[in-house]
């Protein structure tokens, strides 16, 4: 199926030319002032792994990293990412397809069901473990305050992140 070209979506009223590095690749495009980073990623760059699940900046499905920091791509304008290093879910696995430790833990521990919140969860987890390589269960849950999952009841997400950090699970969770 043919995909829309970015230039079609943004063909009118473009005001800003932005350049950034996305998953290590230099990209640029014309955007409006109001173009959100997530729109630029999804529609401009066809990186559709970053999802939009709400319009009040709460669900976290659009979580990406900007200059190494966790950001909701729906709550930042593309123009503000000019010059930034952006990392999305598409860049997490190795080039040969090998899953990262976090991704693999999500599969091993059934930390996803419908998959829609999953990219945001993985990006949030990566951000947590970078800052806090051995989080407690409570710290994991607290870190996910801005990421909503409707399928898993969080049990296996928390378990996966703990496992990815190399920690044994409490007996209660190990059923």
């Amino acid at each position: 199926m043919l995909r829309l070209m970015a230039s079609m979506r943004f063909r009118e009223d473009f005001h800003v030319r932005v350049s950034m590095t996305v998953n290590g690749r230099n990209v640029s495009g014309e955007v409006e002032g109001r173009t959100l980073l997530v729109e630029f990623l999804r529609e401009g760059l066809h990186l559709t792994g970053t999802h939009v699940g709400c319009d009040t900046s709460q669900c976290g499905a659009c979580t990406v990293h900007v200059d190494g920091m966790q950001v909701k791509a729906c709550s930042m304008f593309a123009a503000e990412a000019d010059g930034a290093q952006v990392a999305t879910i598409e860049g997490v696995a190795a080039n040969d397809g090998t899953l990262s430790a976090i991704q693999q833990a999500f599969q091993d521990h059934h930390g996803l069901q419908c998959g829609f919140c999953t990219p945001g969860m993985v990006m949030a987890a990566a951000s947590l473990l970078k800052a806090n390589p051995k989080p407690t269960e409570h710290e994991v849950r607290e870190h996910l305050e801005g990421n909503i999952c409707r399928c898993t009841g969080y049990h296996n997400i928390v378990k996966a992140i703990m496992a990815a950090s190399g920690q044994e699970m409490p007996a209660l969770a190990a059923e």
Partner: peptide, 19 residues
């Protein structure tokens, strides 16, 4: 199915754009 969801390769309806 996890591999495609974990790598951002799922194909949800909003990912579909037709010329």
């Amino acid at each position: 199915e996890d591999v495609r969801f974990l790598t951002g390769s799922g194909n949800y309806t909003d990912d579909i754009n037709i010329f």
